[in-house]
Design a protein around this nucleic acid. Structure first.
Lengths: 156, 156
DNA sequence: TGCTGATAATCAGCATACTGAGTAAATACG
DNA sequence: CGTATTTACTCAGTATGCTGATTATCAGCA
């Protein structure tokens, strides 16, 4: 039997664990308690004003049931607003608030700093190779989870 | 601002998400509802009979508070037993049961199959490179999380 | 138009992960 | 020996992520 240290699944879990810890440390130092998940959602809402929750979920590959809680917390923090859609009464249109935009600008340098720390063990070339391989590997299995990534251009 | 798709943190979260889904699909097909976390713990207990929970946590880089629940569920499923340590009354000695060993043997092929599926987008050489870079990157940041990996040989 | 199936959001329930606090027991040290 | 510190475990609380069910609404079609 192979050791778990040789299994990609275990290593990825481990790396993700460290990545989240680094994110919290850096963003916390910048004075915010935003989580990695909340940050990705905030960026996506900022870039796609008025997006509904299902589309938002597809943009950042979250499960639809997870989005509900994430959006709740962002609304509670005053960083976004959730209104009924004018065209579809089932859907909610999400918009970032000025406070949300402010938060985004404040913490983005810390977030990018965190990304560098995560990869500090790799050289420039190795970092590029790692990112390439990671994207390639994910691309080949994207449809195997309940929450696949869906870009707007990718009209089914 | 960089897109989240260019951030290693986001990509790793995404890959981990898919990896867990693949694990559940393969192991489920083999007739078990063991989770990735429970599998790693079961392997570690099988390899280190009588291990206590803190040491177990270090072996697979879990947080000490997470281990409590994982061990609870493995005990409840009858795959391991948790006894008071004979040498330290604070500690619990963990042992795998014959049923646990049986489960391990049954699902290990499915687990290894899952690892192959995760990397199906990469060539042989790319898979090797990816694993190397992943291990190297993790090694450089291991101590930045609350639950660092601690091998028995690594006497602080 | 009216019914059927699909869709958006939510909720209940379970399993990680973490922070921080508390209890019991072991160890260190004067 | 006795106290101070450390250690092993557990618990409360919060935030992902998932499965599966439910509700409200929309869209397609006879």
């Amino acid at each position: 039997m192979k050791s778990v240290e040789e299994m990609p699944g275990h290593l990825v879990r481990r790396f993700q664990q460290v990545a989240v810890a680094i994110f919290h440390a850096e963003v916390g130092q910048a004075g915010s308690d935003i989580t990695p998940v909340q940050y990705a959602a905030l960026v996506a809402i900022s870039t796609n004003p008025g997006v509904d929750q299902v589309t938002l979920a597809g943009l950042i590959a979250y499960d639809r049931t997870t989005i509900t809680g994430v959006v709740d917390r962002l609304v509670h923090k005053g960083l976004i607003v959730r209104n009924a859609s004018t065209t579809d009464r089932r859907a909610r249109a999400l918009h970032i608030t000025s406070e949300g935009q402010q938060t985004l600008e404040t913490i983005t340098p810390a977030v990018e700093q965190a990304q560098e720390i995560m990869l500090r063990g790799l050289s420039e070339d190795e970092q590029k190779a790692f990112m390439y391989l990671l994207q390639k590997a994910i691309g080949a299995v994207n449809d195997l989870s309940r929450a696949p990534m869906r870009t707007p251009t990718q009209e089914t």
